[in-house]
Design a protein around this nucleic acid. Sequence first.
RNA 1: GUGGGUGUAGCUCAGGUGGUUAGAGCACCAGAUUGUGGCUCUGGGGGUCGCCGGUUCGAGUCCGGUCAUCCACCCCA
Length: 403
Amino acid sequence: MKALRGMKDILPPLSKKYLHFIEQASNRAKRYGFEYIETPLLEETLLFKRSVGESSDIVGKEMYQFTDKGGNDVCLRPEGTAGIVRSFIEHKLDKKGGVHRFFYYGPMFRYERPQKGRFREFHQFGVESFGEPSVYEDASVILLAKDILDGFGIQHTLKINSLGCPACLPGYKESLVEFLKNEEGICEDCLRRRDTNPIRVLDCKNQNCQEIYKDAPKLPHNLCNECKKDFELLQQILKEEGVEFEIDTNLVRGLDYYTKTAFEFVSGQIGAQNAIAGGGRYDNLVEMLGGKPTPAVGFAIGIERILDLIEFEEKREGYYIGVMLEEALKEAFNITQAKRKKSKAVMEYRPKSLKSHLKSADRLGCRYAAVIGEEEYKDGSVWVKDLERKEEKRVPLKQFLEE
RNA sequence: GUGGGUGUAGCUCAGGUGGUUAGAGCACCAGAUUGUGGCUCUGGGGGUCGCCGGUUCGAGUCCGGUCAUCCACCCCA
């Protein structure tokens, strides 16, 4: 038996790195006022069709979708935002008013061809902020993402763009479609996009298309006054915070729910799948899913892609406890349990040579090796060596337990 | 969904034109050093050579298929 294609077990030492990341990222999110939320991995298919959008590749061809035994059309979540918005509305937080900030992490599922940095089951850490229309919140969310990346010393480039709002985006789409109609030689995908979701042509990877779109109308040049003001203020805030960024007028993101601010953090060190975090504002989504109109902004970080970029070394920690004679086992087990009340303690049940114990203690990453040999057994003491400082001593059991 | 690379020990990989019992290094266990970790030396345990089929007296080696994996396209975190 093997794990399914594109699905990976996370075992040590990688799992240590994983936990470490979650811990650090969670702490940073809490500093910004975000609280933990967990929603089901399985949701009604309709939720993603309505939010992520049927024209997106994610919903169009990458969902793990099936009918459950009750006849419900369900699917494994391909992303985190939709479920949280559903939960936000279901628990009537939209009616309650005020600002609600959540962070989450966990597995997402997309049926894609696996590749470097791309798996069918992958993990995201993300945040969602509801109820705050101020562009300062967009900036906060971006700064939080950057804090997390910087905390791990991850090199990155930040790209930002503004997609506009219902007041200006439709007009832009029209002028873009008009432009596309007069051009020849655009790829088949783009022809399809022109009819379903025209702004998606902007991030087409086809070089020929990009050549053509150089003359296309640009998103930031067609914003309404409010969107324009916000986009400018966002840039100003970022500059004042010393954040480097570039404006990518072709950044549109693959999920249909984004409005206004869109951003992406990319890394040049992890292969073709270079987006390590992405997000933006989605002021219409709560309403689209049946809630009271509520502005919102958030991002998601790809954990696997981050883990590829961070170094994590565990320090020597705790006790290794072993015996050199069978009779001392019970005693050793007792002190192991006692030590576990305060620190890490691992015990070897097989009596063996001191040399062999030290080797094991070293390999297990323990700071101290405590061994009971014949002499210690006789006079109720234990031999302890600090593997880091290379200092050793023989102490009475009682004293050892109090250390 | 499309293209290319790769599947031999826990890991990294050798195994010209088919030929006896399939190898190395690292890792693991033990001993040298009978109470001192990372070094050295010696010994030991480990393999359905991805899987199925074909060719052949004989296949790790050749052929076909299949699966897995990696990388890229695409898409995205």
